[in-house]
């Protein structure tokens, strides 16, 4: 296997409210010998809200982001579930609708770009599983997480809608019984916790519009992991992470009981197992402080 090389679409959150996610992504990539070229030209994906306001603009901006992966001749790797969904959905719509593609390309031509559809778009979690391999990861583990019960939290936009998601990667994930993150936990030597909320919504996207609903969803997720006797949660999505890591007060209030959990990004969990330092993984940037590492 040659050296794996991807175009990294960081998304906005990794550059702002979850700096630890970007740090740990690079730390893990270096340990595994994966090269990540940052798409510095990329814009925000619209986070599933811009399309409510202006669907066509959202398509054009996402297509532009993909153009920069195409011009580098690389697969685009995302580290945010919502970036993944918005980008993959744009690709799906353009690849299956010549007229729409032509309309979008007409706009892109104004800035000298063309969407071709030549780059794959995959979340880092699936890139690791499909291209690098869990066996190889477990061989490289130097500090197995064998003393921990770890609750996976998948995040909606990596598993639904399944038809679209399963176009993007080889791992065939069923949204009602997903396994990828559980498999990564096991590869890191941890004990995976099974609980009802692992494939449910954290409420992030309605936090401002429907704060009570959002707080209840966060609360149920934290409660599920706590009652499943988890030591910490792990998620591939920085938006889920933000919600679970910072909103425990609102969640506790909504639930009528204290709910709080330490939550790691999947890159941080993997990094710990691969022997990265606490500093490299940015563990000090958590609001629900990390006490075990």
């Amino acid at each position: 296997m040659g050296k794996l090389k991807y175009a990294l679409f960081t998304g906005c959150t990794a550059k702002e409210s979850t700096p630890e996610q970007l740090m740990s992504t690079y730390a893990v990539a270096e340990k595994l010998g994966i090269e990540l070229i940052e798409l510095s030209e990329a814009s925000c994906c619209g986070a599933s809200h811009l399309q409510d306001y202006d669907d066509f603009l959202s398509l054009v901006l996402n297509a532009r982001n993909i153009c920069y992966a195409e011009s580098r001749g690389m697969t685009m790797v995302t580290i945010c579930n919502t970036c993944q969904l918005n980008t993959a959905m744009t690709k799906h719509r353009l690849d299956n609708d010549e007229k729409l593609k032509a309309r979008v390309n007409e706009k892109l031509a104004e800035v000298g770009l063309e969407y071709k559809g030549t780059s794959q778009i995959t979340h880092f979690l699936y890139a690791l599983i499909d291209d690098f391999g869990l066996d190889k990861i477990s061989e490289m583990v130097v500090k197995p997480l064998s003393e921990f019960n770890i609750a996976p939290f998948y995040g909606c936009h990596n598993i639904r809608p399944s038809e679209l998601q399963n176009e993007s990667h080889k791992t065939k994930e069923n949204p009602y019984n997903p396994t990828s993150l559980d498999d990564l936990i096991i590869a890191c030597g941890g004990e995976n916790v099974d609980y009802d909320e692992k494939n449910k919504c954290c409420g992030f996207h309605a936090e401002l519009q429907a704060p009570k609903t959002a707080a209840l969803l966060t609360g149920k997720a934290l409660q599920g992991a706590m009652d499943g006797n988890a030591d910490f949660m792990v998620t591939p999505c920085p938006l889920c992470h933000l919600k679970l890591d910072t909103q425990y007060d609102h969640a506790s209030h909504a639930m009528g009981r204290d709910v709080k959990m330490e939550v790691l990004h999947m890159q941080q969990m993997l990094g710990l197992a691969l022997g990265c330092s606490v500093e490299e993984l940015g563990l000090k940037h958590h609001v629900s402080e990390i006490t075990f590492a």
């Binding site: 599933s48 909606c156 639904r160 409420g203 992030f204 519009q209 429907a210």
Partner: peptide, 10 residues
């Protein structure tokens, strides 16, 4: 108030 979880699509 939709949370965009895509459970309905599934």
């Amino acid at each position: 108030d939709c949370v965009k979880c895509f459970e309905c699509a599934e």
